[in-house]
Design a protein around this nucleic acid. Structure first.
Lengths: 351, 351
DNA sequence: CTGTTAGCGCATTCAA
DNA sequence: TTGAATGCGCTAACAG
């Protein structure tokens, strides 16, 4: 025993490889070999080591292992999302997790609630922890600061919202196309006063969905009424207030297009409160749970958060595996799901 | 320059403290002082260091830092939940995250989908990563294996389901009481054939909710009909099938008690499909989004996942801060929310 | 097959 | 105020 190491039978905290080595009467390297399943260890010795590991409750310290291994990955990725309590983000995260778990990679998730500072803090924290890569649903308007991290080997995949001022992979949905389809459907049924209720305009999805809304009007040769366009509904309370205001106007809209799931839910509450669900057409972006069971059913533009998350994760792990092809931009299709609320005919204000 | 260290101007990966020290022409210790905000550094020198840090894009490697710091925490906690895509778990996780973020602690989340093996793997992974503590929504029947971790200083708080074979903190809801209240309400309205649709019986919440169901019958002096009790509906498909089967019997139940959110949603679809939502009473455990907007509204026993998550996180951090008081068991109250479906009177089977 | 030495990136101890 | 040595727990490279 030439080790000057600890002599504790019962280490205060976790046992280390040295404790195991001493107890088994072997060198640390042999323990390391056994722990890592390296070949070339005499069975008898291996058994002694295993017994010692068992007895001490030894668990390899992954941080130390990673530190020493040359160019070793930490086996962790970061996922920065808006709010894990939002089903869209939660479902996406779940899909990422699924792919990660299959590779034995853990996921560090952070909700940032549309706060650019929290986003920056979250990213910095992930870098400090040397995650192998990150999946970002950004809130900030500029992502150039990530270029530095990229240059240092950090792999970043954007989801839901594309990178700005940065070359990075992106997986999102056809926001403009989906909005356009929804609004065209409303126009086709004769609606003209179609309100748009959307999220903060710094969010690209909101911008794209509004663009789709406008495009549908252009396509139909109908002018948009700017009075019917409301932005910045990033809080349910605001969405409710906006919907209530719109729907109590003398010339209220005959249809609503709500550009995000929480706004859709808020609008549903208001419509119900005013007993207008049967009278005002409504299409939302993002599916909502139980939307099919309401009367009328809630028509939505459905995107597939599971597919987005899975695709993003696979893209990220592909990069980690060495794929250094050109930056990819994956736009997933969306689908208009007609359940009733979007197929209501326009009704004059009888109020 | 007496350091034998690297001489790269542009390190391949991340810059280390040595790169910074060389560039600034100081010792590593001085860089360390600046990075950690320790006092006693000449401003001029500090500035040189800061400039070098900036220039190299240096980020302290937290793993290395933690490794060296004496008894230092990793600033991370693990959260093991059933499925982050389930709103109950997602909301709980969000609350934990909120508390953690305020303390600069990151969260490692793992969904385990009712798979005990995945749970064990997730826990082992968290231990390898030396998280400071963990919050567990367990799926396994026995948690004694965690005693070892506990002895080694790992702090564990259970949520939703209490520890078995282990002394550990726990935060959950009054499952039995909530179920009892719900079923009593149905009995009070004259229902006798009240079906129970529940999750796997290895899950304590399912057991407790069933116990509450039974207790309500005992309280009322009514016998339960075992034919109306269905278990193991841990997959939506199964829940739907079970509900469909129950509701197509000649002597179908006049009321349903669905003991979990996904089962409630499955039952709602079936009831709707059979046009029975107005005829068969229904109370679910766990609130469901938009449940208030259905016709009739979905009566539920509501628990507060945010409060559970927050409480669990605060409990955990309290332990990390040195609270070594006796093990705590926090049972949060639940609330019967009457929205219509639970207040329907019993109706004879009309054929 | 096994062990020794060195060092990952950093913080601590102690000396200058 | 600053820096050189030492070692956290582990593995790589190189002995024997």
């Amino acid at each position: 025993m030439s080790h000057p190491g600890p002599d504790l039978e019962h280490p205060a905290g976790h046992a280390t490889i040295r404790h195991v080595a001493e107890l088994a009467g072997v060198s640390v390297k042999s323990v390391s070999r056994v722990v890592n399943g390296e070949a070339g260890v005499r069975p008898e010795l291996a058994e002694r080591v295993t017994a010692a590991i068992e007895q001490l409750g030894y668990r390899r310290n992954l941080a130390a292992s990673t530190l020493r291994r040359r160019g070793q990955r930490t086996g962790s990725i970061g996922v920065v999302i808006q709010d894990v309590a939002n089903p869209f983000a939660a479902t996406l995260l779940r899909a990422v997790e699924e792919v990660a778990q299959r590779r034995g990679v853990v996921v560090l998730a952070s909700s940032i609630d549309g706060d650019a500072e929290r986003e920056a803090r979250a990213v910095a924290e992930l870098v400090r922890r040397r995650v192998d890569g990150m999946i970002l649903m950004p809130t900030s308007a500029q992502h150039g600061s990530l270029a530095e991290e990229q240059r240092l080997g950090m792999h970043v995949v954007f989801v839901d919202r594309p990178p700005v001022g940065l070359d990075a992979d992106y997986v999102g949905a056809d926001n403009a196309g989906g909005a356009r389809t929804a609004v065209r459907a409303l126009l086709d049924r004769g609606h003209r006063r179609i309100a748009y209720l959307g999220d903060t305009r710094t969010i690209s999805t909101a911008v794209e969905r509004l663009a789709g809304y406008r495009q549908a009007f252009v396509d139909a040769g109908v002018e948009t009424d700017e009075e019917l366009i409301v932005h910045d509904l990033n809080v349910s309370r605001h969405a409710r207030a906006a919907a209530a205001e719109l729907l109590s106007r003398r010339d209220r809209p005959t249809a609503l297009f709500t550009a995000q799931n929480l706004i859709t839910i808020a609008a549903l509450h208001v419509l119900r409160g005013l007993e207008l669900r049967q009278r005002v057409a409504h299409i939302g972006f993002d599916d909502v749970e139980l939307g099919d069971l309401l009367t009328p059913g809630v028509s939505v533009v459905r995107q597939d958060p599971t597919a987005i998350g899975r695709t993003a994760a696979e893209l990220l792990f592909g990069r980690l595996d060495g794929d250094d092809g050109p930056v990819r931009r994956v736009i997933r299709p969306v689908e208009l799901v007609e359940r009733g609320s979007g197929e209501l005919a326009p009704l004059a204000f009888e109020g």
